[in-house]
Amino acid sequence: MTRWPKLPELAREMTAEFAGTLILILFGVGVVAQVIAGGPALGDHDSIAWAWGVGVTLGVYVAARISGGHINPAVTLALAVFKGFPWRKVLPFWFAQTLGAFVAALIVRWDYTEILHKFDPGLTIKSQFVFSTLPGNGSLPVGTWGAFRDQVIGTAILLFLVLALTDVRNAPPLANLAPLIIGLVVVGIGMAFGSDAGYAINPARDFGPRLAQYLTGYESAWRDQYGNFYFWVPIAGPLIGGPLGAGLYILLIGRNIPEEEEGTGMTEPRPEYDVS
């Protein structure tokens, strides 16, 4: 049997992050396209929340063995700040994650061409939410700073729980179930914190598809429904909220977990999906 030569370590990890994020966005942006452009008979807010959670679960499973399954620049940054992830890998991971999101959005844009053009022939703010987030989901009375606050809070919740679910000194899910539970966390955030800003909680998830929609005809891609430059909010908010949530986990829980008593034999094996 012919064996393919292995890529260098960093290239393998970038490939995994690209693939994992691509899977995430195929499910996430795909379900929003179906619900927004296809009509309410094809889904609602709950189906959007569940499909994003499924996308996260499958994306993490795809990448976990090779790269840890970050699939989110906010996760990568938080792990670099608090968990020893190499800083030299942060920018390459960000690039791979954003590229994966960009390519996935192009695929969805291509696949939904006819439906999007029928729903919104001018490719305006009406269907922009399919690919990128907007304050107040484009219709509720939320402005730039309200959305920024929401992104900080939502991503802090995500990273707090990611660290809780992958800390082998705590009580993490066993039998390789952590990616599934992390997907459920995203479902919960979508159902509880989806109104203010569309719960991007992931800079690559928003910027990659936003760039894709701009390059395929959405002239308003960088602005919100008020005409303000908005693209920076789902980038800056998560990059602040991620380390904040990770730091709070370490402060409140991680540093307070009792050390294993010598000879108890209670140490769990390091999970393959452990992002720490």
Rank of each mutant, 00 (worst) to 15 (best):
residue 219 E to Y: 04
residue 60 V to S: 07
residue 273 Y to T: 14
residue 148 F to M: 05
residue 93 F to T: 10
residue 134 L to Y: 08
residue 244 L to Q: 13
residue 268 E to G: 10
residue 73 P to K: 09
residue 224 D to F: 02
residue 66 I to E: 04
residue 111 D to G: 11
residue 204 A to Q: 14
residue 221 A to R: 13
residue 139 S to N: 14
residue 212 A to W: 10
residue 208 G to W: 12
residue 138 G to C: 05
residue 16 A to R: 05
residue 201 I to R: 04
residue 210 R to P: 02
residue 11 A to W: 14
residue 39 G to R: 02
residue 123 L to R: 15
residue 208 G to L: 06
residue 58 L to Q: 06
residue 93 F to M: 14
residue 167 D to F: 07
residue 54 V to H: 02
residue 127 S to C: 13
residue 147 A to E: 10
residue 20 G to Q: 08
residue 129 F to I: 00
residue 206 D to W: 00
residue 77 L to M: 09
residue 76 T to C: 06
residue 92 P to S: 15
residue 74 A to K: 10
residue 254 G to S: 09
residue 145 W to F: 15
residue 158 L to I: 09
residue 20 G to S: 11
residue 202 N to I: 03
residue 80 A to I: 12
residue 243 P to L: 01
residue 149 R to D: 06
residue 148 F to P: 04
residue 166 T to F: 06
residue 121 P to K: 08
residue 125 I to S: 01
residue 262 E to N: 13
residue 17 E to Y: 10
residue 63 A to N: 00
residue 169 R to G: 05
residue 65 R to I: 06
residue 6 K to V: 07
residue 39 G to V: 01
residue 119 F to H: 15
residue 41 A to P: 03
residue 132 S to T: 15
residue 276 S to G: 14
residue 236 A to C: 04
residue 231 F to K: 11
residue 251 L to A: 09
residue 208 G to T: 01
residue 274 D to V: 13
residue 229 F to H: 01
residue 16 A to C: 03
residue 184 L to T: 02
residue 131 F to A: 08
residue 155 T to D: 13
residue 236 A to S: 00
residue 116 L to V: 12
residue 126 K to Y: 14
residue 47 S to I: 00
residue 52 W to E: 07
residue 84 G to L: 07
residue 82 F to G: 04
residue 56 V to N: 07
residue 162 V to G: 07
residue 145 W to S: 06
residue 150 D to L: 03
residue 257 I to N: 11
residue 166 T to V: 13
residue 236 A to Q: 00
residue 214 Y to I: 12
residue 59 G to R: 00
residue 58 L to Y: 06
residue 265 G to H: 10
residue 243 P to H: 06
residue 13 E to Y: 11
residue 12 R to T: 08
residue 178 A to S: 05
residue 44 D to G: 15
residue 91 L to H: 08
residue 267 T to P: 01
residue 275 V to F: 15
residue 133 T to D: 02
residue 69 G to Y: 12
residue 170 N to P: 14
residue 197 A to S: 07
residue 256 N to H: 15
residue 95 F to P: 00
residue 134 L to E: 04
residue 46 D to M: 14
residue 251 L to W: 08
residue 121 P to C: 08
residue 153 I to C: 06
residue 10 L to M: 14
residue 264 T to F: 02
residue 3 R to Q: 05
residue 86 P to H: 02
residue 136 G to Q: 10
residue 257 I to E: 13
residue 273 Y to R: 11
residue 247 G to K: 02
residue 153 I to G: 03
residue 249 Y to D: 01
residue 236 A to Y: 03
residue 211 L to M: 07
residue 251 L to Q: 00
residue 61 Y to G: 05
residue 65 R to P: 03
residue 128 Q to C: 09
